[in-house]
C-alpha cells in the first residue's frame, strides 16, 4: 500500500479526476480529505472559496512577508531621507530644522507601499514556484479545459495512502467525467 518514493523519476505523477462543476469538486475534495489523502491539489479556472479548507491547505506566508516588506520599506525610506537631510547634506531651507519629520512622511509612506507591493507579487510567485513552464499535471488528457470550464482533483502518487487501484476506485465513485493516471 505504499506510494512511490518522491525521488522516483519514472512512476506516475498521480490520479486526476475531472469534474463539471465547482460544487462537485468541493465535495470530492472534502471526501478525499476524509479518506485520508494529504498530497493532493485541486485545479480550477477561478478561485473557489472553501476549496483550501476542503483539501486541507493552510498558508499565511504571503501576508507575513508583505508585512516584513512594508517594515523594510518604511525603514529604508526614512533612513535615506534622515541620513541625507541631516548628516550627509544638511541644507537650510526656509529656516526649517534639518530633521523636519512631517516632511519625511510622504516619501516614507510611498516606500512602504512600494516595498510591500513588490513583496506581495514576487513573494506570491516565489512561493507558488512560478514561472514553471512544465508540470506533470499538464499531461492530463483534456487539462486545457482547466483554465476554461472544467475542475480537476489530483491525488499525487507521493501520498502515503496512494494505491493506483484503490485510489482509482475511490475517485470513480465520486462521479467524475473522467479519471486518468498521469505520467510525470
Amino acid at each position: 500500500m505504499s506510494g512511490h518514493a518522491a525521488s522516483d523519476p519514472v512512476g506516475p505523477y498521480g490520479l486526476v479526476a475531472e469534474f463539471e462543476s465547482p460544487q462537485e469538486l468541493l465535495e470530492a475534495a472534502e471526501k478525499a480529505k476524509l479518506a485520508g489523502y494529504k498530497k493532493m491539489d485541486a485545479y480550477s479556472p477561478f478561485p473557489i472559496h472553501g476549496l483550501s479548507d476542503a483539501i486541507g491547505f493552510r498558508d499565511a506566508k504571503v501576508p507575513f512577508m508583505v508585512f516584513l516588506g512594508g517594515l523594510t520599506g518604511v525603514a529604508c525610506g526614512f533612513t535615506l531621507i534622515w541620513y541625507t537631510a541631516t548628516i550627509d547634506y544638511p541644507l537650510n531651507v526656509g529656516g526649517k530644522p534639518f530633521n523636519s519629520l512631517p516632511s519625511y512622511i510622504p516619501i516614507s509612506f510611498e516606500c512602504t507601499v512600494l516595498f510591500s507591493a513588490l513583496t506581495a507579487v514576487f513573494g506570491m510567485l516565489a512561493l507558488n514556484k512560478l514561472p514553471k513552464p512544465y508540470h506533470a499535471i499538464f499531461n492530463t488528457p483534456g487539462f486545457e479545459r482547466c483554465s476554461q470550464d472544467r475542475f480537476f482533483l489530483a491525488i499525487e502518487a507521493e501520498d502515503p495512502v496512494y494505491d493506483s487501484q484503490v485510489t482509482r476506485d475511490f475517485l470513480a465513485a465520486l462521479h467524475p467525467v473522467a479519471v486518468n493516471e498521469v505520467e510525470k
Binding site: D41, A42, Y43, P47, L51, I55, K61, P63, P131
Partner: peptide, 20 residues
C-alpha cells in the same frame, strides 16, 4: 508563467491580490 490554476496557487494569489 506556467499558470495551472492550482488551488494552492489561487490561495496565495488571492491573498496577494487582496493585499495589493
Amino acid at each position: 508563467l506556467g499558470w495551472r490554476g492550482s488551488n494552492q496557487h489561487w490561495h496565495r494569489y488571492e491573498q496577494a491580490y487582496l493585499l495589493l
